[in-house]
Computed example of a mutant assay.
Amino acid sequence: MEEGNSIIYGLEHQTRALSPQYGESDAIRFLIGTQNLKPQANQVHVVELEEDTGALHTKVFKHEIGEIWHLRCSPHDVATLLTTHNAFDPNSSQCTMGVTIFKLPTVEVIPKDLDDLSAIQGRNAEDMELLKTITSEKPEEEIRCAEWHPTDPNRIGVVYEGSLRVHDVNTGAAVATTAPEGRARLKFTGGKWNPHQGHTQFAVLQDMHIKCYDTRADSNKPSWSIDNAHRQLARDLDFNPNRQFHLATAGDDAALNIWDYRNGKEPIFNRTDHSHWVWSVRYNSYHEQLLLTGSSDARALLTAAASVCRDLDDEAARLSQVLEDGVLQSYEQHEDSVYCAEWSAAEPWTFASLSYDARLVLSRVPRHFKYKILL
């Protein structure tokens, strides 16, 4: 991929689910889930970027179980993924949601020879192996998302609209349940595992607030919380991979906030560079001062938060700020809401953004910012 040029991959159906292939350390791969209302029409696309040439290679798999609202690749097995999906049930005449774990028949995307290329070009969408489906006890209850446990391949956290449950992957049974107190409790809208604190905490978005629960036992009281993290609905969160008390949040107030949850009264970093709802926020796994956001203003932004990523006890680090805080680059190749923006799991300078108009844009951090960080 040449400096400054993004690569666009178009799909046939609308999309809002994207995940890097976390278990892959060599190839730059992303998985996309489609959101088509037609029965048995949805797919999972595996997209691989050939770094030297900028060529894209893809494979397409069937996802006949329903439209995909959320997708996560397993950090434990490169071929395993889970989808949060919605489908119309003709028996009950209503839509039901579920979480399904799949296994890809192959992780190879780039053909090894001409025979492989001919075979791929002549094939339609392939089948994935369905390993397990988890559904709500109440068919009408919405499922917001599902996240793999960071270290235990047999556990996933599932965020329902009224509770958080940790499920056993093999049996599907809930092994821990969290439901907030109060009759008029606000609904959950998403969440994520805390990669620190022994991997026992799961933080959820609850309207404008952030609540974090200990998953080792059933609980209805949070371990910590950030009230009024946003002036409107909180849409996404991501933990700083290097600083155990820092997390970033995004919301309908068009804001990107960074918090130290030990004192959550005010954010330690705040930007409102988007002009509409911010759906996604992600820390770079290697360089914590780089953050990605995606918004309904049809833009993905690369933002620097260097001022809150320095060690203030180190005088040299305190005096030298590698990047200036603020937007480094705006990516405007989309024409609809950017629901997801994700860093590559294999290459720290490459990322992808996905919009509802079925457009995946792969980009790289501009070279001069990269050199500022490295040199």
Rank of each mutant, 00 (worst) to 15 (best):
G10L: 07
G10N: 10
T15I: 08
L18G: 02
P20N: 13
Q21W: 03
Y22D: 06
E24A: 09
A27C: 08
G33C: 08
G33I: 07
Q35C: 15
K38L: 14
P39D: 08
Q40A: 11
V44M: 05
V46C: 09
E50M: 03
E50W: 02
D52C: 11
K59F: 01
E64I: 03
L71P: 01
L71E: 09
R72G: 08
R72H: 14
P75N: 12
A79R: 07
A79C: 05
T80G: 07
T80A: 09
L81M: 09
S92D: 11
T96F: 05
G98F: 00
I101V: 06
I101H: 05
I101F: 10
F102T: 04
V107P: 04
V109E: 00
I110M: 15
I110V: 15
K112D: 08
I120E: 08
I120F: 02
Q121V: 06
R123D: 11
I134E: 05
E142Q: 12
G157N: 02
Y160F: 13
G162I: 12
S163D: 00
R165P: 01
V166W: 04
D168I: 01
V169S: 05
G172Q: 09
V175E: 09
L186W: 14
L186F: 10
K187A: 10
T189I: 01
T189F: 07
N194K: 01
G198L: 07
Q201H: 15
V204H: 04
I210S: 01
K211F: 13
R216E: 11
A217N: 07
P222W: 07
A229V: 04
Q232T: 03
A234E: 02
R235Y: 05
F239C: 02
P241D: 03
A248Q: 02
W259T: 04
Y261P: 00
F269R: 01
H274Y: 02
W279C: 11
S280Y: 04
S285M: 14
G294F: 03
A300F: 07
L301F: 07
A306V: 12
R318P: 00
V322F: 08
E324L: 09
Q333R: 12
D336Q: 08
V338A: 09
Y339T: 04
A346C: 01
P348C: 08
W349A: 04
W349C: 09
A352E: 03
A352D: 10
R359V: 15
L360P: 12
V361N: 06
S363H: 02
V365F: 10
K372H: 11
I373M: 08
I373R: 12
